[in-house]
Nucleic acid binder design. Structure first.
Length: 620
DNA sequence: ATCGAATGTCATTCT
DNA sequence: GTAGAATGACATTCG
């Protein structure tokens, strides 16, 4: 890349005089001498020679860079967004997108700072530069604010510390020529930029970038603020804050000359694709970092241009009022807000009507026009509507005329959030088809692959919505399903619905209620299963406890029996008859009555013993 | 291609 | 008798 290191060997006096002569010529050409010191002049000289030698190299490299910039966009299939590809080793590799605006605004400053200047020699010129900025741009105060993103605010003469002379020459300097080139104002440059922006390739890239302008800002060429500041009087100078220290004063003229040559080479034969990665939002962000300062005409013009070039060709029959119109006819401030808030490419065929159930009232033109049109159609839904003659919607539609327009359709507009306002018959089909290209393009499907379940349930619901729309039923499905029977009947009586509509409404109500009932039933079933499982567990535990207790009782019983038998024999051995002989345990047994008395009963003659030997045992 | 889970829908019965 | 709830059975979708 550009070798801007100062050679260690100081030039001779003769060389310095020669360089001085050359330098005066440069001064006569408009360059400011105080910016440069002797080393700079030496660098200038060396760089001039190198630039001549490497001119061909640079051209080739720049072409490759342009190609690489085009390849920097990678479609994230998961989110459907274009995200930057990490380009390891490439000088154009920019920091990760997350705060794009910050990066975009900080880059010019970094570019200016990355130029390797001897510290201290440029402090004066930098102060002058800042002073010039302050005099030129009324909003120069914001410059410090912008600088805050990269370096701490340094007031007054301390601004020279902003020049990070310690930093090596950044490859960005050589690979981002535009910021420096743009500093060379002039009609030829204006013309070059005008031609650049009018190139079809650039517009094509703009269209691509409009798919996700938010990400695009990460690719904003660092030159954009300078470009719009200097070459487009159309844009106000209010964006000067993003410029930071004016590179034209902070940069050696050889840099400028070199890049100007390169720039001309780039602009003339082929478009500078590096800058072409601007989408409308990136366009707006780059040129008008402050939303208030962004001229809505610029946003509107770019949005229009994009929509006309990329979106509208896919909409053979544009609805009477589409998002483009809404944007175009809305106040400029709103247009800007939309420019910043929503990707324009998603507006016409956005499948985000997913949340139709959540907002019953259309609050914006986009919602009323497109939100109800998409209904979160899935491909299967589209097939049902368009290619499946046996589908319910088709049945209803074919059996009865779809020209039904309730008398109080306008009155019931408040309940048409889901069904949407009545549309002319011819608008339905094209609108349904319009949802296809975006889905097939993978742009709108990606984000929804994460939420398939939710999407699916809404798709289910949308089938009845489609049918209701097909028959021009002036109620929302929610109303049809959830209204109490009295209110529902009252609503039915208010509107003169034909037989098919009534049947559909009742079917919708039945299905809706049955759906809820099925959900409740399954929920109950699951709860029952869970409860039974819990009960089974508790019963199993109780059974184990009882078994344990039983075994303990058994062992205890055995122990007591053993003790009892021992005691029995002990007692029995103490008994003596009249002759003093012990009783035989095989012939007699001890029995105890309820009152506690113990009797000796002969075993063989139990029946008689009770009546005959009622004598208490003489236990000693 | 197959399987299982989740969900929607229909038919039937019960309240 | 009707509407709604409950539920089994089947279909559909999707991972």
């Amino acid at each position: 890349m550009m070798d801007v290191e100062v050679p260690d060997i100081l030039p001779s006096q003769q060389d310095m005089e020669l360089i001085d002569i050359l330098w005066r010529q440069d001064v006569d050409l408009g360059a400011r001498r105080e910016v440069f010191d002797r080393n700079h002049r030496q660098k200038v000289h060396a760089l001039q020679r190198r630039s001549e030698q490497e001119e061909e190299k640079k051209q080739q490299r720049l072409r490759e860079e342009q190609k690489a910039l085009l390849d920097q966009l990678q479609l994230d299939e998961e989110t459907g967004e274009y995200i930057p590809k990490p380009l390891a080793g490439s000088a154009l590799t920019t920091p990760p997108p997350p705060p794009p605006e910050t990066q975009a605004t900080a880059n010019p400053l970094e570019l200016a700072q990355n130029v390797n200047f001897p510290e201290g020699d440029d402090s004066m010129s930098f102060d002058e530069c800042m002073q010039l900025l302050a005099e030129t741009f009324p909003l120069v105060e914001d410059t410090s604010a912008c600088l805050d993103t990269a370096v701490p605010p340094v007031p007054g003469s301390d601004t020279h510390s902003l020049m990070p002379s310690k930093q090596p020459a950044s490859p960005l300097t050589s690979l981002s020529p535009a910021p420096i080139i743009a500093d060379r104002r002039g009609p030829e440059m204006d013309q070059a930029w005008m031609e650049l922006w009018s190139l079809p390739e650039l517009q094509h890239c703009l269209n691509l970038q409009m798919e996700d302008p938010l990400e695009t800002t990460a690719y904003l060429p660092t030159s954009i603020p300078d470009v719009q500041e200097r070459n487009y009087p159309y844009y106000p100078l209010s964006n000067a804050p993003n410029v930071g220290p004016n590179p034209v004063e902070a940069c050696p003229p050889t840099f400028i000359n070199t890049f100007e040559e390169v720039f001309h080479d780039m602009v003339a034969p082929e478009p500078m694709m590096g800058n072409a990665t601007l989408g409308p939002k990136g366009f707006c962000d780059a040129f008008y970092p402050d939303p208030v300062l962004c001229p809505p005409e610029a946003v509107e013009a770019n949005v229009k241009e994009h929509l006309e070039s990329s979106v509208l060709p896919e909409l053979p029959k544009k609805p009477p009022l589409n998002a483009t119109d809404a944007h175009s006819h809305s106040p400029p401030g709103e247009a800007l807000e939309r420019c910043k808030q929503e990707p324009p490419a998603e507006v016409p065929d956005s499948d985000s009507g997913i949340s139709l159930n959540t907002s019953p009232h259309a609050s914006s033109p986009e919602k009323s026009v497109y939100g109800d049109g998409s209904f979160g159609f899935s491909d299967s839904d589209m097939d049902d509507l368009d290619f499946n003659p046996g589908s319910a919607e088709s049945d209803y539609s074919e059996m009865f005329s779809l020209d039904f327009q309730p008398d109080d359709f306008q009155q019931s507009a408040l309940v048409l959030s889901q069904a949407g306002p009545p549309e002319p018959q011819q608008d339905k089909k094209p609108k349904l088809h319009n949802t296809k290209p975006a889905e097939e393009g993978g742009q709108s499907e990606g984000p929804f692959t994460k939420d398939k379940q939710k999407r699916r349930s809404e798709v289910r619901l949308s089938r009845d919505e489609q049918r209701a729309r097909a028959l021009r039923i002036p109620f929302t499905v929610d109303m049809i399903i959830n209204l109490p029977v009295d209110d529902f009947n009252e609503l039915m009586s208010k509107h003169q619905l034909n037989e098919a509509q009534l049947a559909l409404v009742r079917d919708i109500r039945r299905r809706g209620k049955n759906k809820v009932a099925a959900q409740n039933c399954r929920k109950r079933k699951m709860e029952n299963i869970v409860g039974l499982e819990y009960e089974l567990d508790s019963l199993t535990e109780e059974k184990e406890l009882l078994q344990m207790e039983r075994s303990q009782n058994g062992s205890s019983l055995r122990k007591m029996k053993h003790q009892l038998s021992t005691l029995y024999l002990q007692v029995f051995s103490m008994l003596r008859d009249e002759e003093g002989k012990p009783y035989s345990p095989s012939d007699y047994s001890l029995q105890q009555t309820t009152d506690g008395s113990v009797f000796l009963v002969p075993r063989t003659k139990k029946t008689h013993a009770k009546s005959k030997d009622h004598k208490p045992a003489s236990a000693d």
